Amino acid sequence: MDVRDAVEADASALATLGDAPQESLRNAIHDRTVRVAEEPSAGTDGEGSEDGEDEESTTITGFVGFDARDGTVYVTQFGGSRAACELLLEEPVRFAEHEGMDVEVVVTATDETMRAAVEAVGFEKKGSGPMFDGERTVRYRLKPEPGS
């Protein structure tokens, strides 16, 4: 699985993965740090075309958006497969380690897959988060070890 910066053309795929409006994700790509995980699509061989260009297509399997303010890195949006989310959550954690900040993420209380991904990366439950679209959320926080 490869990780790269998101581009505007990714907004539709991210909206599907994150169950969010495409315009919201397009704005996030412009306003925040957004990274995507992608894998080769089924049926590609990666051998390239006759002109030597690699025509391997990829499928986005997850994304994470984050920003930093007031001494904390906030994961603002993420979604996709659990494996992709675990890999992608390492992005804001690395940023926080480098800047000496904590990381915070809020997950819908009923989303066991995303809660498991957050906990697998090392986040600890810190109580209830705000209501989001009428659903309870759980607030998680991680204080990265300097230089880890």
Results as ranks from 00 to 15, higher is better:
residue 97 E to V: 05
residue 98 H to T: 02
residue 38 E to T: 10
residue 56 E to Y: 01
residue 29 I to N: 04
residue 46 G to F: 06
residue 75 V to A: 02
residue 34 V to Y: 01
residue 54 D to G: 04
residue 87 L to G: 13
residue 51 D to K: 13
residue 84 A to T: 14
residue 86 E to H: 03
residue 38 E to A: 15
residue 49 S to D: 14
residue 88 L to H: 05
residue 77 Q to L: 12
residue 45 D to Q: 04
residue 29 I to R: 02
residue 72 T to W: 02
residue 49 S to P: 01
residue 84 A to Q: 13
residue 80 G to H: 02
residue 63 F to A: 09
residue 94 R to Q: 15
residue 84 A to M: 04
residue 61 T to E: 09
residue 89 L to Q: 13
residue 65 G to W: 05
residue 84 A to W: 09
residue 73 V to P: 02
residue 35 R to F: 04
residue 68 A to E: 08
residue 55 E to A: 08
residue 34 V to D: 02
residue 90 E to R: 01
residue 75 V to G: 01
residue 37 A to C: 15
residue 55 E to L: 14
residue 67 D to E: 12
residue 48 G to H: 08
residue 62 G to D: 12
residue 90 E to V: 10
residue 98 H to E: 10
residue 93 V to E: 05
residue 80 G to P: 11
residue 36 V to T: 15
residue 89 L to P: 13
residue 72 T to Q: 06
residue 28 A to V: 01
residue 96 A to R: 00
residue 59 T to M: 10
residue 63 F to C: 11
residue 30 H to A: 15
residue 76 T to D: 11
residue 46 G to V: 05
residue 31 D to W: 05
residue 55 E to Y: 07
residue 76 T to K: 02
residue 52 G to Q: 05
residue 43 G to S: 13
residue 46 G to C: 12
residue 83 A to C: 10
residue 56 E to S: 02
residue 50 E to Q: 14
residue 97 E to R: 04
residue 29 I to Q: 00
residue 29 I to S: 00
residue 42 A to H: 06
residue 53 E to M: 10
residue 97 E to M: 07
residue 45 D to T: 11
residue 57 S to T: 15
residue 79 G to S: 15
residue 47 E to S: 14
residue 55 E to I: 10
